[in-house]
Nucleic acid binder design. Structure first.
Lengths: 221, 221
DNA sequence: GTCAACCCGCCTGTATACAAAATATGACGC
DNA sequence: GCGTCATATTTTGTATACAGGCGGGTTGAC
């Protein structure tokens, strides 16, 4: 059993608290208190805070402390715009470069999405959806790009989850997955990119959904 | 005078050492020795190592230490491919969204490039070139995208510098800048993106240049 | 002679101690 | 009553102390 680094565990635990809305925007995080809560010293806790600052959820101010910084609505919109373009990029390269075994794996992730939709299982769909997208990242043949895409995915994941909760969104998402898969299977780079961008981007009802879920997170509920 | 965080100063100092080739690939970095060299304790030094691990130059292995990890040639190629696409993205949005004052600032950066070329001043061109690209990032109207682009720029900067050293490369780069500027000024998004991608991407001689400079850095000179 | 196990030393990871800066508190003056 | 200055307390940042793991070297057995 690999005893993970405590800093990572603490980071993840803090992330859960963030997503559960236990911290208010701009709140100052007290190192001593948090260290006591996690039964560690301040050293690994500070490490965790530094990790979180890299992902933007915490802002470190020299000699002032760590402050909670949820992305503003504007930042979220910008992040989704970029994410959509990055995913389109992955799709474009994937269509050009995917090999048959990977294409088959991608097909399996689509099937997993179908199964989840039929069962009406949202968490399962969330996982299958993630697999689908990550498989495309890997199929891009550029592992640096894939890593960057995954980093963004992790950062936006909580907000993407809430997007799937709206009625009918899961079915729509699945239909788009089928389109994307077909484009990649047909090695049609432009069609793959063109199908992926709106799949990820905020538009129409999606935008409104985000605003709602944003307010919800913001108010800690 | 703002007493900067020591960890940042140490990180930058270490970066200089990396670029000067003072560390060999895979070399293990001894915390105690480095801490002594910088006249600090291990605490801020470890902080600096964690910062460097975020930019990929150092790989941290639990209970084993920090290891130097220069990007391989393959990784570099992947990074340049992604960078080219990200810059193209910035250019596309910039053409759509740039306002007149920013366009004027962009014109000034092109003029600064011209001045540097006429003077044959490579360092000046490097700075002007950087300003040109950063202005486009900002003009994209997406500050998240701009920040990501800048992060990539910083990470690739040392390798881009060596690319400009080849004969005639500065003139060619300037000519491409003029094209890019014209496309943005004409609000032609596709042309801007189409001009930026090859400007940044590795192709033809550029690729060979990179291989050469890579070998040079790799061997610590 | 080779391989394996054990032991010792070095190094990392974590806790704690200490110093200095920032903020909170209270008193004084306007 | 409000603002400002001095002081006290909290809290960060850094140094140091301590514990445990990893690696290297030596020793012993086959």
């Amino acid at each position: 059993m690999a005893s993970e680094r405590p800093a990572f565990l603490i980071r993840d635990a803090l992330l859960d608290r963030f997503l559960a809305g236990q911290f208010a925007q701009g709140e100052r995080l007290n190192e001593q208190k948090l260290a006591q809560e996690f039964n560690v010293s301040r050293t690994p806790l500070r490490e965790a805070l530094q990790l979180l600052s890299a992902s933007g959820l915490v802002r470190l101010e020299h000699r002032r402390g760590a402050f909670v910084h949820y992305p503003s609505l504007e930042e979220l919109i910008e992040m989704f715009e970029f994410m959509a373009d990055v995913e389109a990029l992955c799709g474009r390269y994937a269509a050009q470069r995917i090999d048959d075994p990977t294409l088959e794996r991608l097909r399996q992730t689509v099937i997993a999405c179908e199964t989840a939709v039929e069962a009406g299982d949202l968490p399962a769909y969330f996982d299958a959806n993630r697999d689908f997208h990550r498989t495309i990242y890997g199929a891009s043949g550029n592992s640096f790009l894939a890593a960057e895409a995954e980093r963004l995915l992790n950062r936006l994941a909580p907000f993407r989850r809430t997007q799937l909760q709206a009625r009918g969104r899961m079915q729509q998402s699945l239909a788009e997955h089928r389109d994307i898969f077909d484009a990649i299977a047909a090695r049609d780079a432009e069609r793959a990119a063109g199908a992926l961008r709106p799949h990820v981007a905020l538009q129409g009802n999606r935008f409104n959904d985000l605003v709602v879920s944003y307010r919800r997170v913001q108010q800690g509920k």
